[in-house]
Computed example of a mutant assay.
Amino acid sequence: MSTLERLAEALGADVMKAMDETGDERLFMEVAGVIGTASQTLEEAFLTDIRVRLAERKARAHLIARVKQHRAAQKKQG
């Protein structure tokens, strides 16, 4: 893993935690703007990391909801 990838991943994890704590779902855009003034390369890597994390979070929530729905239907039948 390159320095760029390590930095983007670490910052992405920290920003996701801060977003959860503050409730600010767009905080990553503010951080990306700060990064972009110094390094467009890091900004792109950071945004990719954030998009992947947000997509995984959304997919996981969907999966959990579907399993709960399935289990509830099974209880009604059984």
Rank of each mutant, 00 (worst) to 15 (best):
K17V: 10
F46A: 03
G12S: 01
R51S: 03
L11C: 11
D14I: 00
L4Y: 00
R71Y: 08
A18T: 10
K17M: 08
K75Q: 14
A65F: 05
V15E: 06
L63D: 11
E25F: 14
M19R: 08
D24K: 11
E25M: 11
R60P: 10
E44W: 05
R51I: 01
Q69F: 07
V31T: 06
A18F: 05
E21G: 11
Q69T: 11
G33I: 02
A18H: 11
T22G: 04
V34S: 06
L4P: 06
R60V: 05
E21D: 13
R71H: 14
S39V: 09
A55H: 13
T41V: 14
K76I: 03
F28D: 11
V67L: 07
K75F: 03
D20I: 13
E44P: 04
F46P: 04
A8I: 05
I50H: 11
R66I: 12
K76A: 15
K68P: 03
R71G: 09
R26W: 09
K58S: 09
I35S: 02
T22S: 08
T37W: 10
M16P: 12
G36M: 06
G78P: 00
F28W: 13
G12F: 05
V34T: 13
L7S: 06
E5P: 00
E5M: 00
E21I: 14
E21P: 10
D20F: 09
A8P: 00
A55V: 06
T3K: 13
